[in-house]
């Protein structure tokens, strides 16, 4: 575990990371200092975490996840509507003084490259500019527990927390999302 920025106090934050494995959230959560950890809630896909009693129990009671509908999930509402709903739920979480852990790629990637970010992070940032956005890079977790596997292999992995993103006045959505994506990717190169 590495901290690229100063040791963290317990102010409200959104941690955003590349997504490669089911263990991603648990590793970030475990790496946080206890005071920060207590108020950190993961943002997770409703269709996945509501599909069975064990998952539902874990998501609701153990992780206290903020469950959102993914654009790809098969309901009859439009993607835009679902997106707004998702952002509204995340903001609701922030307004309850919680910190959030989000994976803006939306799905687990191969681990080699950081995929394009969904726009939810941008709306979150615009609605609540006073909340710090902290980039987090996860390395090797895709090899510990790849997509579709159940037993983890105990490989060494690394989580790197970066310095919070600076506020940029009048930045477009695309520019912001690309800047955020790069911030995560750069942590992996260091």
């Amino acid at each position: 575990m590495r901290w690229a920025s100063a040791p963290i106090d317990d102010r409200q934050r959104v941690f955003f990371a590349n997504h490669t494995s089911h263990l991603d959230f648990i590793l970030i959560w475990a790496s946080l200092p206890a005071r920060v950890r207590r108020r950190a809630r993961p943002v997770a896909a409703q269709d996945y975490w509501e599909s069975g009693p064990i998952r539902r129990y874990l998501a609701r009671k153990v992780f206290r996840a903020v469950l959102i509908e993914r654009a790809a999930s098969g309901t009859d509402r439009s993607p835009g509507e679902r997106g707004r709903e998702a952002v509204a739920r995340m903001i609701e979480g922030l307004d309850r003084e919680d910190s959030l852990i989000v994976f803006p790629e939306g799905t687990r990637g191969s681990g080699d490259d950081v995929g394009e970010f969904k726009s939810g992070l941008y709306y979150l940032w615009r609605e609540r500019p006073d909340v710090e956005l902290v980039p987090v890079h996860l390395e090797n977790l895709n090899r510990v527990l790849p997509k579709g596997e159940f037993i983890p292999v105990p490989m060494l992995s690394r989580v790197t927390f970066g310095p919070p993103l600076a506020w940029a006045e009048g930045e477009t959505k695309e520019a912001f999302l690309e800047r955020a994506r790069r911030a995560v990717q750069r942590l992996g190169e260091a």
Partner: peptide, 13 residues
């Protein structure tokens, strides 16, 4: 430590 460094991938899981 050895496997972490080795060029094994998802398929070798």
């Amino acid at each position: 430590e050895f496997v972490t460094l080795s060029p094994t991938g998802r398929i070798d899981h």
